[in-house]
Amino acid sequence: MRDSANISSGLVSHKKLGFKKWIKRDYGCYLFLLPIISGFFIFTVYPVVSSLFYSFTDYNGIYFSHVGFFQYQKIFSLGYGGMLKDVAYSFGITFLYAIIAVPLGMVLGYVVALICNREVKGVRVFRLLYYMPTIIPGVAMALLWADVFSLNGIANQFLDLFGLHSKFLEGEDSAFATLLFTSLWGIGGSVIMWLASLRNIPPEMYEAADLDGARYFTKLFKITVPMSTPMIFYNLINAIIGALQSFDTYAMVGRGPNDCLYFIAVRIYETAFGGGNQYGLASALGWLLFAVIAILTMIMFFTNKSWVNYGDGE
């Protein structure tokens, strides 16, 4: 392996390399990386630095008059002009949504994958059908759900059969639950992933367990679930980070009735582009979101060793 690596790059040692030789050897690689390196500086480094700067100013797109910590003070203060209550609510509701919707989707996807996994013909067709709803544009889904869950819509007609009625997306106490319910239509992707991960479990493990007379649920919790943990972990991080930044709900519910679904990504968007041009404040909120995501990622990375099975050599 080592030899082949040396041939393919033509290098002998990493350290004893003059500048000329280094450029002569590596320039090809850097040329290939040129688009992404320039893109990194233009679309990541520059915006990150200026965003950090904006967050300490009252920049509105044209000028700024103050520099200081006042945006953060505003976010964290409760008094006059303070936003702590509103911001905390946005973070809270976003976090609540992520922490319910993501595991719910993953667990349901896992159960569905377990059902379709073995000895069932036509899995491919079902897999396809389950994935279909996830590729319908969010805006189209928004219109559809608005219609289905309207006061006089088909969902209420169904509830009428049981003598019930709900305001669904238009009611302050039902909008969140309705939104969670609509997120169920996104499980198709997780079903496909789980099916793939279940196939990767070596069948010998089950054969050994069968010889020992293990029952279905023993095998499920002693083999299947532990063997899936690397994927559970990886997907959990990704999906939660994604859900914390979710803007998809904006088309369907906006801020929600009485601002009850004012997710943090929506708040940042509205702060910056909703009319006030509060670029400084929006940047500060963006950094706050970054801090939350970074902390979550760290926690998950540092605690995963206790409950994630990476198998040998990881």
């Binding site: 679309f43 990150v48 968007y269 670029y279 929006a282 963006g286 979101l289 970054f290």
Partner: peptide, 8 residues
């Protein structure tokens, strides 16, 4: 997050 780089 995209929100950090959005404004700049």
């Amino acid at each position: 997050p995209g929100a950090v780089v959005m404004v700049p």
